[in-house]
Every structure is written in C-alpha cells, then in structure tokens.
Design a protein around this nucleic acid. Structure first.
Lengths: 154, 154
DNA sequence: CACAAGTTGTTTACGTGTAAACCAAGAATG
DNA sequence: CATTCTTGGTTTACACGTAAACAACTTGTG
C-alpha cells in the first residue's frame, strides 16, 4: 500500500475541529431544545417540514424523501409523535395504500413556541460567535462538500 | 414572548448547510470506512485513542473522558471489540476495581491498515475540496465554537 | 381482465446509545 | 478497625435507527 498524503497540521486541525464541533455543538443545541420546548431534534425537523407547506400535510414517502429519512424511521417516529398529539395520520384519497401526515393544532403551537427559542440557541452557540466572513465561509464549505457528495453517488 | 432575531439569508444558509453536511458527510465517511476496513466510526476512534499512547493501554475511565464517552458506552463497546479480537481487557495492578483496555496485535494491524484509507476518504470528501483559506477558516470556526461551549458549561 | 411487477407504509429483528441501578473496592472518618 | 462515602466498571431497562420482511394496493402487459 502506497504511503498516503497524511493531513498536515492545518488540515488536521480543521478535520478534528469539525468532528469535535459536530459532537458537542449538536448535543448542546439538542439539549437546549429538549429543555426549552420538550422536543427532540428529530421532532423539530418533522414539525418544521410539515409546517413548511400551506396545507400542513404530507404523504409519508414524500416527507421521508425531503428529510433524507427512511420510510421506516419516519413511520415509527410519526407513531410516537401521534401519541403525543403533535401530528395525526389520515388515509389518502387517491391511493388507498397511502397515509397522509397532518400537523395537528398542538403540533402547530409546539413549533410556534419552539422556533424562537431554537433560533436563540443556534445564535448563542454558533452564529453570533462568528464574523460575517466566517458565516459566509461556512456556507461555502457546506455547499462545496454537499455538491460533490450528491454529484459522486458511488 | 419577544420577537427574536431570526436568521438572515446568509446565516440560514450557513446553519442549514452545516446541518446537512454533518448528516451526509459523516455518513459517507463512515460508509467508506466500513467498506474499506470493516470498522465503524466508533471502532476507529477507540483504536486511534489506544494507539496514541506508547504503551497502547488505557484505564477505561481515562479513555472514556478523553473521548467524551460515557463509561457505560465505552464498556459495552469494548466488550464488542474484544469479541472481534481488536482489544483485550486486563485487571489493574494498583486498583483492583479498575480495568485496563489494551490494544491487541490484531487491533494494531487493523488501525495501521485503516488509517491511510481513512485519510484518503477524508481528503476526497472534504479536505481536498477546500482552499487553504477555507481549511483555515473551518479550523477557526471550530476553535471558537468549542471554546465557548467548554467555557459556558451551564 | 388476469397476472406479474412495482410501490406504499408498517412491522420485526437487531445493533447500539443513554440513564440509572448495581456491585465491588478504595478512601475517609470517628 | 468499623462504618460510611465515593469511585470504577458492568449490567439492565429503555429509546431509537436500520435493513429486511411483509401485507395491501396500484400499475403495466399480454
């Protein structure tokens, strides 16, 4: 096996920093949201996806695709959210197999209340710590990396 | 509840990009490592922590602290790695309660073989896509965020 | 129309993370 | 040195993600 190009100091610092940031930052923001609003990260993602559409309803598969979740994951998660009164399931008119996930009144209230607290948390732990240049740069980095990832689906 | 400062377009792009990058990039790199070396992300982290010390041995608690893992998580993970011959457990001389995790010969070989492939994967999906300025910037961002996180342990 | 093939959503089996209970052994205190 | 407190590690109960199997339904084809 040929000797690879190892990471130099700066590269290593960036990689390790990214890894550690991902570990701790996400945990902190999730903890904040659990404490402030009683929602998990996943709950929030589902609620905000649902509320992004005027009708507040999505076919399960569509929603799963949009979120890059497996159908099975979403199905089970919806089940749990249903028990907590955040969403409801309805049958689909045009396809008897289908099920439609609907944001309930309680779910709507939950995300309305959670959103400002969540934004505050994201600001506190990330956005407000960075310069405008760094924010721009982070956006660029993500765009580049994601562009390549979706291009080379091997 | 007062209206919060919502994220503007650039801030939102950075936050969303970060979230999505974390979701997809990490999954891709983990997939590569599983395929190339049969190791999970967690396996790799344990192996590289163990091999970072000349003696290739750590007390469980120390190792858990260093990795920011819970004792229970590490204990169970070590159990699985032990079955696969990557590490062994030994009693501790100075404290009869203690257990010492030792990198086995097989574990040493595994990480030796995995490391260059892992670096290549990190380069392909992240480092080699970025300019030197972006690499520097990513390191800075992580340092800032992590600094604040560990400062304000509330 | 009948039947094969594909799609939709749920369920099952399994791996693994967390929190809390637990046990054993060291440390501290009277 | 006996009793209590603390610490190191494991185990248990539970939550949740994934892949694969499954059942119900739709679609495409002769």
């Amino acid at each position: 096996m040929a000797e690879p190009r190892w990471l130099d100091d700066r590269e290593f610092r960036a990689w390790l920093g990214y890894r550690r940031m991902r570990l701790l930052l996400d945990a902190q923001i999730a903890r904040d949201m659990q404490r402030d609003s009683g929602l998990s990260d996943a709950d929030y993602d589902v609620l905000s996806a649902l509320s992004s559409r005027e009708s507040r309803r999505w076919r399960l598969q569509e929603l799963a695709d949009r979120m890059t979740w497996s159908k099975s994951r979403l199905s089970r998660h919806i089940g749990r959210m249903e028990e907590r009164g955040l969403v409801t399931r309805e049958g689909c008119d045009t396809d008897a197999r289908g099920s439609v996930i609907v944001l309930s009144e309680g779910g709507w209230r939950a995300i309305q209340e959670a959103a400002p607290l969540h934004v505050a948390s994201v600001r506190t732990h990330l956005i407000d710590l960075l310069t405008p240049e760094q924010i721009e740069s982070l956006g660029d980095i993500a765009e580049t990396v994601l562009g390549r990832l979706s291009a080379s689906r091997d």
